[in-house]
């Protein structure tokens, strides 16, 4: 068993099948000479699914040791939360709180980072972004948004 390529095959199969089934059932496929919106995606999905099968079949026939290293769950969650927080707050809370939240979330992602250091880093980043984007480049945003009554 080659666990890594088995997982790779799984990713391909899931992508290929979900796009393929959506194109086949949800769209007009048409024909090679009169292509509908679903034709091109369907062809690609079949290709991806096919490669997924090939990679998977090869993976079950060979034996390769697999010892992956992962980022801690805390890091992944904190990093992914950063842009999401920005998106959820930029219009409501405004630019300053949104950047601050994003930077704090990201700064806490490092394994072993202490909160007060993360807060200092985040404040510095916010000040820098404020100077560059708002005052320097005139980015069309509000510093503080309607949720906090400004």
């Amino acid at each position: 068993m080659d666990i890594k390529n088995l997982a790779a095959s799984l990713v391909l199969l899931v992508t290929g099948l979900s796009f393929g089934l959506t194109s086949f059932f949800g769209m007009d496929v048409g024909s090679a000479l009169r292509m509908g919106p679903g034709y091109f995606p369907l062809v690609l999905s079949i290709l991806i699914t096919g490669i997924g099968l090939a990679v998977g079949l090869k993976a079950v026939t060979v034996s390769v040791p697999f010892h992956p290293q992962y980022a801690p769950v805390r890091s992944i969650v904190a990093i992914i939360a950063a842009p999401i927080l920005f998106g959820m707050t930029i219009r409501g809370l405004g630019f300053v709180p949104a950047v601050l939240l994003t930077a704090i979330s990201a700064a806490m992602a490092a394994k072993g980072q202490r909160p007060h250091i993360a807060a200092v880093i985040a404040l510095a980043i916010t000040a820098f972004c404020l100077a560059v984007f708002y005052y320097g480049l005139g980015l069309p945003v509000r510093l503080f948004g309607p949720w906090i009554g400004v």
């Binding site: 990093i79 950063a82 842009p83 920005f86 998106g87 930029i90 950047v99 994003t102 930077a103 990201a106 700064a107 992602a109 490092a110 980072q113 250091i117 993360a118 880093i121 985040a122 510095a124 980043i125 916010t126 820098f128 972004c129 984007f133 980015l139």
Partner: peptide, 19 residues
């Protein structure tokens, strides 16, 4: 230090993508 660099990258990238 990377502990400063990567939160900055994320903040800039968020602003950049939004802009």
């Amino acid at each position: 230090p990377y502990a400063v660099l990567f939160p900055a990258i994320l903040a800039f990238a968020s602003i950049g993508v939004y802009s």
